[in-house]
Write a protein that binds this DNA or RNA. Structure first.
Lengths: 253, 253
DNA sequence: TTAATTATGGTGATTTTTACCATAATTGTC
DNA sequence: GACAATTATGGTAAAAATCACCATAATTAA
């Protein structure tokens, strides 16, 4: 497709100010919380092809004809990991000139814009898809947020953005319950929050009383014993009882 | 540019799954707060050319070669309104297939992606640029958020998103001080918050004590009299004293 | 001079947060 | 089977923050 000249209003720019053509990709910051080992994980893939072959990067894909951005984000995830329960939302778009080495240096080839997404997947459910390694990836792996390798493109920046969003989101919305098992103990929930938000984000006892007072955690009546100590009650999340708390902070750091 | 076939991994999709080509535009939700008349305003332009000619829409522009997204957003603003003090940030990207009538129905032409931005400009400073009406706009006007006309494209949805972000942002960050005059009264500030967040968001007296206790509003020593009543102290915002409050709520609704 | 108006700086009741502590119910050990 | 260790649970009291007011100060308008 030939470049079209801009509608000729700005005389001084007329010869050079042309509309850029874009390829649009999605990049997905996929988080998973391992409460047993107290690790906050991000899914990375080892790139197989240039640019940045043999560098770790976020799973991503270019958007296809007829495909929505969110569909593409879901596809980028489902090609790498199998999981039922997940939360996904758009993060930010990165599209400055020169962010992708595939762009021609004369600035007349296609630009590459990345619409980034952030996902949270159930750690107990999540399974790598073996076939996923064929789709442009040599390897798939979970990395702890504190121990990331060097990354391709501007993916480090995207991750920083996603990490901030995850911490913020956790305080304001019930995304934890999207990926926790149906029935969980209050300690499970506490470990989840602590793993994401960092140690001493709140006293355990106060965390319990605050959450229970809100009234959207229902005691299922069942108990579970895990090693020594008094058995813990299993709770479940009541989405209807949560409604009044939408857009309100649940926990203060 | 010819369509490139996808790298041939997925046999069943191979014949149809092709990468989409995009034009990328920015659309800008430009807010302005008129504290005298207690109005929250959005800048709209009356479109001159198809698609949606003679419909009101957000100011926007297609991204040019060598231009960053944020530069394009700034340009879309500065073509319509002259203003020194403003706040601008990226909002959300809308890019589903079929969101722009210029897309070919067979889904093999260019797609149109809109990276939306949200701006807050000083109401006292802001002046329409006469020449701006030539750049694809028949008219430029401020509309109250509660009284918007029918809009082009999915701009109504973009505005809803922007309005939510504005209200949220105002509670968590000092964007009001970007567009208030250097020196302002506490009542100015209160009117600003009330105009954006709605009536009875807080008691005036409690608003005053809370903000003053935080310590980043400095009394300049000057007073100003506006009609009847005791003269009010003029304050200024101290950005350094504000640092500790970053990412903390200032006002609860 | 007096009333109306706006700004300012309180007060005390109520609620929330915070830092703890005591007890209950289990497992593991001697 | 007694006892220690461990984890869960449900408190308490002090401190802090929120909330609904109110009294007074300093100006303009009549």
């Amino acid at each position: 497709m030939p470049k079209r000249p801009l509608e000729n209003n700005v005389v001084s720019l007329n010869h050079s100010a042309q509309l850029a053509d874009f390829k649009v990709g999605v990049d997905n910051v996929i988080f998973s919380v391992d409460i047993e080992q107290h690790r906050l994980l991000i899914l990375l893939i080892l790139r197989q092809e240039p640019p940045f072959s043999d560098r770790w990067s976020l799973p991503g894909t270019l958007v296809r004809n007829g495909e929505s951005l969110e569909d593409a984000a879901h596809r980028s995830l489902s090609e790498k990991v199998q999981v039922q329960n997940l939360y996904l939302e758009q993060l930010y778009s990165f599209g400055g000139p020169g962010r992708d080495p595939r762009e021609a240096p004369d600035s007349f080839g296609d630009r590459y814009l990345s619409v980034s997404y952030f996902s949270l997947v159930s750690h107990t459910e999540a399974r790598f898809i073996a076939e996923g390694a064929k789709k442009g990836a040599k390897k798939i792996a979970w990395y702890e947020v504190g121990q990331l390798p060097e990354l391709a493109f501007d993916h480090r920046e995207i991750i920083n953005y996603g990490h901030r969003r995850l911490k913020n989101k956790l305080e304001y919305s019930p995304i934890a319950f999207e990926v926790l098992p149906q029935r969980f103990t209050l300690n499970d929930l506490y470990q989840f929050y602590e793993t994401v938000l960092g140690q001493n984000f709140s006293d355990y006892s106060n965390f319990r009383t605050r959450l229970l007072k809100l009234g959207f955690l229902l005691d299922t009546g069942h108990k579970v014993s895990r090693g020594a100590g008094r058995p813990a009650s299993l709770y479940r999340f009541d989405a209807i009882a949560f409604e009044p708390f939408k857009n309100r902070p649940l926990v203060f750091v």
